[in-house]
Amino acid sequence: SAFIVQVNVLKDKTHAATWFLNTRIPGGRFERMDSIDQKVDATLTIEDEDYVLLLFGKISPQFAFLKGRMKIKGDVLLLQKLNRLVGKILRTREDLDLIFVRDILVNSKIQSGLQSEIVFIEIIQRLARMQNLLPSGDNIRFNIVVNGQQETEWVIGYNEAGNLSMVKHQCRMESNEGKMTPIQVPTKLDIIIDDNDFTSLFYNTNFNLQNAIDSNRVQVTGDLTLVPKIELLF
């Protein structure tokens, strides 16, 4: 029996988005819409952070409900079906890109207002499909700044088999009193780059990393022979 579940997603207790899980479409589908012209069988209200934990099976709908982290209106019995369906749609995908994205979404904050956060998620997917971009141990650190202040840090690394094996991320928002301690991983190349410049590198074909370095828009320290390899990210 098909059902539709409306999910009201909150960010800091304020309504931020409405999603519908529609199983009247074969296989089930999540759609972000303002409203749906069909009968909704249940409405969930949940914080964005908890919703992602729920989708990845890190918490169950029953747990979220019992702990008061999710409100449900309508058919409570749908929770079990929902859990099973979400598992089928999401959790069976064990692709390398989704595993890294899952780790970032589950274990780290996403700093809102920072374009590079979303761009980096795209880059992770690209990196996961790129073999041997970097030799094992040649980790790269990106420090993303806005108006000269560091906002986020990303470290990427490959293993000896030539696959992406490390993506670490932290943002100032979640750090201790806004002070960021560098991620404790040895790196071969450290890049300090503005959020806008980083985004331009990704979207603007007329702007590349070497230009950005030459014009002092980007500070790079370490093994500069890695720069051409990093260009492939963008």
Partner: peptide
């Protein structure tokens, strides 16, 4: 607006 669920569903669609 920096919603994790938006990021996740974008990835799922790609």
């Amino acid at each position: 607006d920096g919603l994790k669920c938006d990021v996740l569903f974008d990835v799922m669609r790609s």
